[in-house]
Each structure stands twice: as C-alpha cells, then as structure tokens.
Amino acid sequence: MACFLQAPIAYAIVSSASASAAASSRAVRVPKPLKLSCGVLGARNAAKIPIPPINPKDPFLSKLASVASSSPETLVNSSANPDTPPFLDLFDSPKLMATPAQVERSVSYNEHRPKSPPPDLPSLLLNGRIVYIGMPLVPAVTELVVAELMYLQWMDPKQPIYLYINSTGTTRDDGETVGMETEGFAIYDALMQLQNEIHTVAVGAAIGQACLLLSAGTKGKRFMMPHAKAMIQQPRVPSSGLMPASDVLIRAKEVIINRDTLVELLAKHTGNSVETVADVMRRPFYMDANRAKEFGVIDRILWRGQEKCPGGGYYSLKLIS
C-alpha cells in the first residue's frame, strides 16, 4: 500500500509543476500520468521523495489508504485538472474550510449579537419582588399591577411583596378625573386576597385611591419617605358631557357610594372612626410624613442611614420614627 501511495505524491508534484508551466505558457500541454510499477517507483524516486507518516485519525489519508488498497488504478489514473486539488475528486461531496476572514467575521458578529431581547424595567423590578406604581390609576396600570401581584404570590406565597407608590390616584394633579374609582378598588381587592406580607412605601405622592393602597399594607410594614406627601379627597364626578340629567344623577349617586366605601376602608386601615375620616375628607386633606403617621396611614418614616429597607438588601435608609 505504501508503494502505491508514492505514485500519487509523485504525480502531485508533477501536476503542480505542470500547472505552473501551463499558467506561464498556454501552449504547453500537461503530460499524462505514467503507469509505473512499484519496483520502478521504489528504484527511481525512493531517494528523492520521502514518505510522510500516515496519521490514522486523518480522514483524508484514511480515505486515500482505503482507495489504494481496493482500487489502486484510481490513484494512478487520477484527474490532471490543474484547478482541482490532487485526489479531491475521490470524495463524493468535498467540503472546503471557510477562509479565515469569513470565520472571523462570523465569530465577531455572533459574539456581540444579543441572544434575547433585554428585559424592561418592570420585569427587572419584578425579579426583586418590587411592584412600582408611578402613574395615575388608569386601566393599563391596574392591569399590570394586578398581574404582577398574582404572579409574585404564585412564585412564592411566603416571601413579602414590596409596593412602591408615587401616584395621584384616579385623578391628575390638577384634579381632572382620568380613571374610575373601581381601578383603585381592583388593586385594593387584589392586595387583600394575597397571602404574602405587603410592604408599602410612599415616594413622592400618594393621593386619593393611592393613599388607600398605602394604608392597606401589612401593619407595621407601611413606610413613607420623609418628603413624600399623602392626601385623601372625595371622589369626583367624571365629565358628563351631553348626558341627560337623569344619567348625571345616576353617576352622582355612584360617586357618593364610592366615597362612602373609601371612607370605610380608610377608617379600617388608619384606626380612625368613620366620622373622623369623613370630616377631614370634606376638603382635600394633605399630610406630610409626620402627619400621615399620626393619622395612621403609615407606621414608620424612612431616612438616610444603614437600616435595612423594604425591597431586600441595604438601601442606606433608617427608620427615624
């Protein structure tokens, strides 16, 4: 088998030389391979062409060895096409390696290409069991908050949930109604159905229905930033437009029912009587952190320090009251 492997190697050198000559002069014809016996090859070319060691794990050399043992004439009569590497036609579907430039481009592109879209901010907070209400209570906000609360309870019904509130409730800061009172009641009912502890923290403002959510946290776990504001007020009648008088009266009655419900819930969570809450709600009742604590809306005020803060980890805050 070794002697037959010498013939292709010798012919490869002849083919390479022939290809160079053909490139320099088109008139020169490539000589046909000679059919030499093993004895002639061994006598004439043994001293000139060294036999390289055969790696048994090399698929190309293994293929050549198998062809040489089964049909040696295939190697001797191999194609003399100068555009084709030697003996590549022995393979049914030869595959050449990509050029280094192609490999480098593909690696650099795939290396920096994101494998998945980056998560949004609510998803990142949800991973820390934090629900943030930073908008008025419109249907889209209610849908997201209720879904997050149900998901966190499903994930772990024993770990606490941290509800951060900075919302004007169902109205804007100028008093215009942007959502129905049922939006706030929907979040409140979801909080009441949870088995988890609810840690509420007011940052910025908690007005109207948002103040109810702040006071609905677990007793002893209701917090407020020192410069945040809380305010309770009566529900407002939505814009009636061109409604008939009878429809306006129906809406007014519904607003009164929502007001009475809000008064009862605030009295329940603040520890005040219904009469007290109804009296202070005749006009907008603003509360800073100290006044909100006195009224029973919150339990503690957070300030800068090294005390552990709701939301996990140390948040450089301490309880000042």
Results as ranks from 00 to 15, higher is better:
Ile13Gly: 05
Ile130Tyr: 06
Val28Phe: 07
Pro139Asn: 13
Pro114Met: 08
Glu264Leu: 13
Ser79Pro: 11
Leu124Gln: 11
Gly208Arg: 01
Trp303Asp: 14
Tyr315Ala: 08
Arg300Cys: 12
Phe4Arg: 13
Ala147Trp: 13
Glu104His: 13
Met192Leu: 11
Ile130Asp: 11
Pro33Glu: 00
Arg44Thr: 01
Gln193Ser: 12
Ser15Asp: 11
Ala10Pro: 01
Lys293Glu: 14
Val28Ala: 04
Gly175Tyr: 14
Val263Thr: 08
Pro50Ser: 07
Val67Trp: 03
Phe223Thr: 02
Ile232Asn: 09
Met281Pro: 02
Leu41Ile: 02
Gly179Met: 09
Pro82Ala: 09
Ala19Leu: 03
Ile257Arg: 14
Ser116Pro: 00
Thr99Trp: 15
Val248Met: 10
Pro114Leu: 11
Phe60Ile: 08
Met224Pro: 00
Gln6Thr: 05
Tyr151Asn: 06
Arg259Lys: 10
Ser20His: 07
Ala230Glu: 08
Lys48Asn: 00
Ser15Leu: 09
Leu5Glu: 01
Ser116Phe: 15
Phe185Gly: 03
Gln159Glu: 15
Ala140Ile: 13
Met155Trp: 12
Gly39Thr: 02
Leu214Asn: 02
Trp154Gln: 15
Ser20Met: 07
Ser78Asn: 08
Val237Glu: 13
Ala7Met: 09
Ala10Tyr: 10
Pro238Tyr: 02
Asp260Cys: 11
Pro136His: 09
Ala252Glu: 14
Ala190Leu: 07
Asp260Val: 12
Ala68Leu: 04
Ser316Glu: 08
Arg282Asp: 13
Tyr11Ser: 04
Ala278Gln: 14
Ala230Ser: 14
Lys229Phe: 05
Arg251Ile: 14
Ile257Thr: 12
Gly311Pro: 00
Leu75Tyr: 08
Gln234Arg: 13
Val131Leu: 13
His199Glu: 04
Leu194Met: 07
Val263Arg: 05
Gln306Thr: 09
Tyr162Cys: 03
Leu61Gly: 01
Leu212Arg: 04
